[in-house]
Design a protein around this nucleic acid. Sequence first.
DNA 1: TTGAAAGCGGTACCAG
DNA 2: CTGGTACCGCTTTCAA
Lengths: 334, 334
Amino acid sequence: MDQPPKSIPTIEQVARAAGVARSTVSRAFSRPGMLSAETVAHIMAVAGRLGYAPNQVARALSTGRYGNIALIVPDVANPFFPPLIRAAEARADAAGLCVFLGDSDEDPAQEERLTGKMAAQVDGFVLASSRLAEDAVRALRGRRPVVLVNRDIDGLDRVLIDSAPGTAAAVRHLHELGHRRIAYVGGPPFSWSNQQRRTAVLQTAGELAIEAVEVAAERPSYEGGMAAAPAVLSARTTAAIAFDDLVAQGLMAGLAGLGVEVPAAFSVIGCDDVLGARTYPPLTTISARSTDAGRAAIEMLLAQIEAGPSSGTAQRLGTELIVRATTAAPGPSP
Amino acid sequence: MDQPPKSIPTIEQVARAAGVARSTVSRAFSRPGMLSAETVAHIMAVAGRLGYAPNQVARALSTGRYGNIALIVPDVANPFFPPLIRAAEARADAAGLCVFLGDSDEDPAQEERLTGKMAAQVDGFVLASSRLAEDAVRALRGRRPVVLVNRDIDGLDRVLIDSAPGTAAAVRHLHELGHRRIAYVGGPPFSWSNQQRRTAVLQTAGELAIEAVEVAAERPSYEGGMAAAPAVLSARTTAAIAFDDLVAQGLMAGLAGLGVEVPAAFSVIGCDDVLGARTYPPLTTISARSTDAGRAAIEMLLAQIEAGPSSGTAQRLGTELIVRATTAAPGPSP
DNA sequence: TTGAAAGCGGTACCAG
DNA sequence: CTGGTACCGCTTTCAA
């Protein structure tokens, strides 16, 4: 009983229904200013009634502009990315672009496959936390406009979430509370973000003349944070700044399992603010601005698509400390 | 010093250089079996020398097959969706398709805009928890293959995560623990998922002859759950099943704020298992299988793209209870 | 086995 | 301001 899917309306059908030429309909959509207001209104009404939308593929064929962009992330399920994706999507949509999403599964080869497949139908790429080798990125940007997020390659447009200010504020906050020996529970050693945070902790601690020790979380995950709890304690610290919120959350769980109360006996600070105030107690953390990053990346890409290859600008997004309830003055030593 | 991008070769140039017709070149690439071996070899050689590759967009315009699909979700940042998106992406990618991601922002109008924009460049749609009116969905499926996730429209292909078994198991679990009066903290009244969970709670409670009261969370969020805590307590229940993990998490926070310990004084069960074991204590919950749902949806869509419109199959995914640490025998009444 | 030509759905130039 | 028409690059009958 199924109707054969009635084909989607074309510009021709709209033109006929509206009693105008195809070119007029085309103009109503791309350059309405060229037409009289009534004509536009009439055409739009007819188009709306028919459920017409310009066919991007046909348009692309004739203009060489695709109206699509690609967004590649290493792992959609990592809570850092969804807000970024959402913001990028929204901004691109506002500019009339459709978004291809690619998940590289943290794998450079996969990322390269994806970019290759998509390059033929997009006007540009946003690569978030790209795992690609530097020359692969450069090669891609030779074909299409590219914007990087949290990856620092000279000569390319990029938006960098600079966690240094927030991290420094976190160390100061701990210092003011009275902590004199703190831990940094680190993430992936070669990650740009990790290096940045680590450096900020060490440097600020140095300036304040307090001790900072580094404890590695074998993986930047809840489990990794949990497993780091004993090491953090045995390092005789009274507070820890974690690579990200997940690690912080795991650390809190590990601490709780060891009978150490947060924040009474130990203070914890996360990073990225992906958990909101949803932990108990609510986690003090460093803002990540992934939403801003997503939007900014699209804006840079749009500019590049408009104006041609840019000389490669780095846009830095500041961060700050969000004090909630996992930090307090150091308690009696455990 | 940038070379002006040397325009990429077209089929026409290859044809001329090879001294054959365009159609012959076309066949060399799409149906080489139709040509003599020498012709093919010759054309391929010339094409190789010129660096020619068929233009996908032009090909799509003439064949009507795009090699793309669209996936629309109400909110990328809702933790239920990323695993689904990830799985769908992976499955589609394995089939050689690129995925457009759309975020409807919970808004039917926006969802309609997105589908309209994408319809002209995709071979089909997956609508997850679609907010579209039923006839809008039907209209869309009139134009393109469509698969629904967690939306039950007769005659359409759909994959439904059936939380009834898991929910029933949750009620039984509570009953075995000794609870005799429990609460269901509900979600959006018209949501298919909510109705299903609510029904399962009420029915199973009836079968076991225990009392179940419904408490509405004004919003299916952490805050909503938190705000429901007083109501849950004043209903004199000793345990609650929440619409989803976020609500459960909020409820736990609300309870903690009221000085009620979980699970000693009150038991809590979530739904969807989006938090893993990452709450403290780890949340007992009902599995959601969103990963399976994402993969299954793509598979149904592929089948539909291959074989033409289906008669509309519902694929149901079972669920089960995951017992962690937020449930225990009822404590002394608060 | 190969060539010629008619689209696919738009855009943009050229008249009027 | 609007209509007519030649493309965009490729696929696909239809003939030869």
